[in-house]
Amino acid sequence: METKNLEESLGVIWHFQEQGTKNQEKICSKLKEGVNEQIFDELLNEKLIRIENGNIVFTPEGEKIASNITRRHRLAERLLNDVLEVKQGEIDKSACEFEHILSEEVTDAICTLLGHPKFCPHGSPIPAGECCKKAKEEVESIIVSLDKLSPGEKGRVAYFTTLEHPQLHKFLSLGIIPGKIIHLHQTHPAYVIKVEETQLALEENLAKNIYVRRM
């Protein structure tokens, strides 16, 4: 229970700092109101934060926890929003539960599944984890945009990036649906792909928006 509160509070402080608020009093009153009266002293005692000129500053350890909890929360939001069909109110509630129970492995797995997203559904940045750094280094990552495949290769549709509505609808109705296998036939002069028995031609810019799991 106690760690949960500590984590929660560090997450709140992280959020404030993102917005540019470091002022001790402001944050402190929010924490006391939202968590409990003693939480601020506990954070100091545990050496997770310290005070500098009336501003709150993370200690290295505190920063790590704060970054991790934020990362888990926002990834959970992405998961609930993109993959599971969950209503807005539910997302906030569940994400708050998820952030405390996800292990590092599971978090990284979700992150990989989602293709190492950079932003949560509300547009706040998701702190990068180990897996994101690795994914950047590894040229051959698992989920890649379609333009990273070579002709003759195939991949299973994972998700799309720019979701302009008519475009998304067109993808879906022509059979480019998450879970379907795309065969890449050629890339020049335009991309030609085959999904089931439907053959489609599209330009490179669109291909970049389709993310597939290599097969």
Binding site: A190, Q199, A201
Partner: peptide, 9 residues
């Protein structure tokens, strides 16, 4: 608009 068409056999 971007190029995106169906290619019939």
């Amino acid at each position: 608009t971007p190029f995106f068409v169906e290619i019939p056999p």
